[in-house]
Design a protein around this nucleic acid. Sequence first.
DNA 1: CGCAAAATGCAAATATGTTGCAAAAAGAAT
DNA 2: ATTCTTTTTGCAACATATTTGCATTTTGCG
Lengths: 156, 156
Amino acid sequence: MDGPPVKIVSIYITGFYVKKALNRAAKEILVSAGLRRTGGRVEILEVLQQAKMPLNQEEIQAQLDRDLNRTTVYRTLESFIQAGLVHRCFVRERAWHYELAHNCRPLQCHPHFTCTNCDRTLCLKDVFLPLVKDIPDGFIIQRQQVRIEGLCPNCS
Amino acid sequence: MDGPPVKIVSIYITGFYVKKALNRAAKEILVSAGLRRTGGRVEILEVLQQAKMPLNQEEIQAQLDRDLNRTTVYRTLESFIQAGLVHRCFVRERAWHYELAHNCRPLQCHPHFTCTNCDRTLCLKDVFLPLVKDIPDGFIIQRQQVRIEGLCPNCS
DNA sequence: CGCAAAATGCAAATATGTTGCAAAAAGAAT
DNA sequence: ATTCTTTTTGCAACATATTTGCATTTTGCG
């Protein structure tokens, strides 16, 4: 063996600094959102920051270093929603999925794509859809969500 | 009293014939979808045909004349989905909601609007959103769903 | 009418959240 | 740092929505 050890160390160091940076950001975010900075909240926020797709409670919990109670995870996510940090969104599964509310246009986030074959959901961050235009008088739009089903590049 | 009685009879007769027509249609629909024509299926299909918004299992069951088991309702709806007659859609509530798959454009149904104040969901049948265009290569779209939250005319 | 396949009912299991309450931790004041 | 108040957390129980296995009934067909 010659290369592997170095590479592993490098990955470790990178991971370490990335994690540090995220950690600092997460703490600041919590404070500016008026939420108490608890270990659990910081970790959940970090998981969401690193997520590439909306996650449900179980998936979030599985990615935590510490053991957090199911209830706590749900309550934390709810507090994030209230603070405007996080959105709930719909995917193919029954469980609620959560994702950071950044990267959203004024009244809508990016669309989500769920593959009907492999069941994976991913974010179409660069795909843009206009807001509905011909909505009847009297309706006030607060949020528009778009979900697309089909075959992903892997499965098509 | 002079007018009312007539009006009531008229409504009754209309309702009766409408129901008859729907019933006949429902049977034909089942046969052509390759599904056995059972009483329960016909009734559930009729409920969906008359629905003005997506309904969940409980709401569907409440509108049936006969007593159908919860399980049967779910299984019937699943068979309708498989046959392409029905779509599942997401509303604000946690339960699945179902609606007929007619009135859909090739790859998308009408958007659904849920009022964040009164929590009612309604179909925006005449509202049109174009299909996403700039979706990356390799994705095959099978269905696009749009959900809008905001205030309905009653609540705004 | 009789038969095979499919649909239904029922009870139990599962998945997903939520609530009430007591214990622990956070942040502010001292 | 210590104390005090408020918020957060864990735990157990509850609630809701849906699914599964299996025995029974019904449907469509010859």
